[in-house]
C-alpha cells in the first residue's frame, strides 16, 4: 500500500496544494478513503490527519466507508425534481431498504443523489455504474433494479 499511495502523491509532485485531487485518486484506487491510506498521505505530506478527516467528510465526492459494487446516482437537479424524481427516490430507497447516501449491508449497492447531471432534456435521470438511464419512471427504476438482481414487484405490461 505504501508504494501505491506514494505513487499517487508523486504524481502531484508532493504538493499539498493538490490534496483534494490526491484524495480523489486514493478513493479511486481503493474505492473509498481507506484509513490506512489516509494515514500514509498524512505522513508523506505532513498534513494533520484531522485535516484529511475534515476533507473526507466535507466533500460529497469522498466516502470513508467501502462503497457498493453497483453505484446508482439519481439526479435531483431542479429539472428532474419538477419532473417527479422524489417519487422515484422513495421507490429506490424502499426497494434497497437504505436511504440515499448509504450502501446496502451486503455491499451490493451504493445509492446516492447528485445535483444536475446536465442532461435535463432526458430527466429524470439515473446513472447506474456510469450508464445513463433517461426518462425515468417508477416502473423503469423497478426494471433496472430487477436486472441488477433485486427482487421487485413488476408490472409486466409496462
Amino acid at each position: 500500500m505504501k508504494t501505491r499511495v506514494k505513487k499517487i502523491i508523486d504524481k502531484y509532485h508532493n504538493d499539498k496544494g493538490f490534496l483534494v485531487p490526491i484524495l480523489q485518486d486514493v478513493q479511486k484506487e481503493y474505492n473509498y478513503l481507506n484509513r490506512e491510506a489516509l494515514n500514509l498521505v498524512s505522513a508523506f505530506l505532513e498534513v494533520p490527519i484531522s485535516q484529511l478527516y475534515e476533507l473526507g467528510t466535507f466533500y460529497k465526492a469522498f466516502s470513508l466507508k467501502p462503497r457498493g459494487r453497483h453505484e446508482m446516482k439519481l439526479c435531483t437537479g431542479t429539472a428532474c425534481h419538477v419532473r417527479g424524481v422524489p417519487l422515484m427516490k422513495d421507490n429506490i430507497e424502499r426497494i434497497l431498504q437504505i436511504q440515499a447516501g448509504e450502501t446496502t449491508p451486503d455491499l451490493e449497492f451504493t445509492f446516492e443523489t447528485v445535483n444536475c447531471l446536465g442532461a435535463c432534456a432526458l430527466g429524470p435521470i439515473l446513472v447506474v455504474d456510469g450508464e445513463y438511464h433517461g426518462n425515468l419512471s417508477i416502473s423503469k427504476t423497478n426494471r433496472i433494479l430487477k436486472k441488477l438482481g433485486k427482487k421487485v414487484k413488476i408490472d409486466e405490461e409496462s
Partner: peptide
C-alpha cells in the same frame, strides 16, 4: 486543471 470535490 483541478477537479472539485463535490460541494456547491
Amino acid at each position: 486543471i483541478v477537479r472539485g470535490g463535490g460541494a456547491f
